[in-house]
Structure formats: structure tokens, C-alpha cells
């Protein structure tokens, strides 16, 4: 029965306008005919055409996706392990250092993380390219994954695992058959988070990569430093579109799952 007061309605409208208007403008002007990005000269999709002609962008996009898939998968495995260690392993020597190393990258300025990794790669004489970017992205993304997964593990009812052990599972089977399916949603969102972090990253990739590999953010960066360009507008629109579609699909899927569960619970209650 509660309604928006005029004050709250105003602050929310202005606030969300501030959050979304820049992106809306970007999307609109990506369909601008003119090369002069700030002058509207009629609707056109020609910049999208040019974008798909531009091999440099396509190559960079391909590198970025490869890096993101590999690093987020690796980060999910390592991050989930780290989360289990944090929540379940109890005390062990060096635990404080371990949790410190998990949380530190979350607040570390990217320039420092990037710089330190670059100096490491040079120090051991590793050729920089896709592989080093994957290593770098995995390292900082696994920390995010472990935070997401461990927050779920903390609220996980441990007696379920104990029941599995009681019924004859080995600890590993208990994890695979009971724990993992239940924490799966958080593992998936950890993967998605790692994936977007990797897609998004400019600074660490710039340090960690060599001349052989250029990611999309690096390509965008070198282009936007010179100013606004219609091709970048088109590229941004595509990226915003992909993210929006992804998030909306994800929320619809989870909402449908929730309603189905509710319906099933109601049906079960009627049976009882």
C-alpha cells in the first residue's frame, strides 16, 4: 500500500537518469550518419558495417574472448578451492597470509598489480602474450570468485555434507554430489563475474601483454585517447547490448526458477 513520495520519486528519477543517460546517448549516436559524432545527421548503421570490416578490432575481440574464457574458468576452479580452504579447512600454518592474499587484490590499485606482474614475467624471462594475460587475469579474478563462493559456503548447512558422509560417501564424493550442486549458482555467478572482469580489464592487460596480443579494451583505449569516434560508439553499443541481454536473461531464468519452486512447494503443500 506504500507509494513513492514525490521526494523519493524525484531523487530516484534523477539518480537513474544520471546512471543511464550517458549510455543511452552513446547508443543513440552510434546510429549517427555523420563522422562528426556530436552532430546528428540522420540514421545509419554504417559504423557497424565499418566495425566488422576492421580486422584489428575483430582480432582484438577474438583475443579478449579467448583470454576471458580461459582465465575465468581457471579462476573459478582456483577461486572455489580457495573459498573451501577459507571456510572449511580450519587452521593451518600461513592461513593469515592466505586470506590476506585473497582479499588484497580486491583493493589493490590495478596499476600496482599490473606493474608487479609485468616485472615478474620479465624477471623470469617469460614471453608476454595471451598466456601471460590469462595468468594475470586468473590471479585477480580468482579472488573475486572466492569471495562470492565463500559467502555462499558460510551459509551452507554443513549437516547435509555430514549426512552424505554418514550414508557412505567419501569426502570428495560428498563434495561432488551434495555440496557442489547446492553452491552451483554461486560458482556460476563467480564465473560470470570473472568473465566480465576479464573482458573489462584494461590496465592489467596492458602491463601483462606483449606486442603479440592486444585485447579489445586495449584497442579501444588507444583509439579513444584520440577522442570520440563513431566506430567506438558502435562497438560500445554492441557491448552494452550483449551485457544487457545477458543480465536480463539471467534474471528471467532465476526468476522463473524461483516461481517454479514456489509453485511446486504450493502444490506439495496442497497434497499434504
Amino acid at each position: 500500500m506504500k507509494r513513492f513520495s514525490w521526494f523519493n520519486a524525484t531523487s530516484l528519477t534523477l539518480g537513474f537518469a544520471f546512471l543511464y543517460l550517458p549510455m543511452v546517448i552513446l547508443v543513440i549516436y552510434s546510429f549517427n550518419e555523420s563522422k562528426l559524432v556530436t552532430v546528428w545527421a540522420g540514421f545509419s548503421t554504417k559504423w557497424y558495417g565499418e566495425l566488422f570490416q576492421n580486422d584489428a578490432f575483430l582480432d582484438a575481440a577474438w583475443v579478449t574472448i579467448k583470454v576471458a574464457v580461459m582465465s575465468s574458468t581457471l579462476a573459478t576452479v582456483l577461486g572455489t578451492m580457495a573459498a573451501i580452504v577459507l571456510v572449511r579447512a580450519g587452521r593451518f600454518r600461513g592461513r593469515t597470509l592466505f586470506s590476506g592474499m585473497i582479499y588484497a587484490p580486491l583493493v589493490m590499485p590495478e596499476v600496482i598489480t599490473g606493474l608487479s606482474l609485468l616485472l615478474l614475467f620479465i624477471g623470469i624471462g617469460m614471453d608476454r602474450g595471451v598466456f601471460t594475460i590469462v595468468l594475470a587475469h586468473t590471479t585477480f579474478a580468482m579472488c573475486y570468485v572466492s569471495v562470492v563462493v565463500s559467502s555462499r559456503l558460510v551459509s551452507f548447512d554443513q549437516s547435509l555434507e555430514e549426512a552424505a558422509l554418514d550414508l557412505g560417501c567419501s569426502p570428495f564424493q560428498a563434495f561432488r554430489l551434495v555440496t557442489l550442486p547446492i553452491i552451483a549458482p554461486s560458482v556460476i555467478s563467480g564465473w560470470l563475474l570473472a568473465f566480465t572482469l576479464s573482458l573489462d580489464d584494461l590496465v592489467i592487460a596492458s602491463f601483462a601483454s606483449g606486442p603479440s596480443a592486444t585485447t579489445l579494451p586495449m584497442k579501444i583505449w588507444s583509439s579513444v585517447r584520440l577522442g570520440v569516434s563513431p566506430e567506438i560508439n558502435a562497438l560500445s553499443t554492441l557491448m552494452i547490448g550483449v551485457v544487457a541481454a545477458g543480465v536480463i536473461t539471467a534474471s528471467l531464468v532465476s526468476k522463473r526458477a524461483a516461481t517454479r519452486q514456489q509453485r511446486e512447494e504450493r502444490a506439495a503443500a496442497r497434497l499434504a
Binding site: L19, L199, V224
Partner: peptide, 25 residues
């Protein structure tokens, strides 16, 4: 969700979007 959504879009693009808004023309 509307507050969190921008998190998922590229940081670089969000910063970039202001260049067209704030420039002299």
C-alpha cells in the same frame, strides 16, 4: 538490479561515454 547493472558494463565504455557529453562541442 538497475543500480548493479552498470557494474557489468565495461568501465572503459562508461568513462568514454562522458567524453562525448562533456567536450566543447
Amino acid at each position: 538490479m538497475l543500480v548493479i547493472l552498470p557494474f557489468w558494463t565495461s568501465f572503459l565504455i562508461r568513462v568514454y561515454s562522458w567524453m562525448g557529453i562533456l567536450s566543447q562541442e
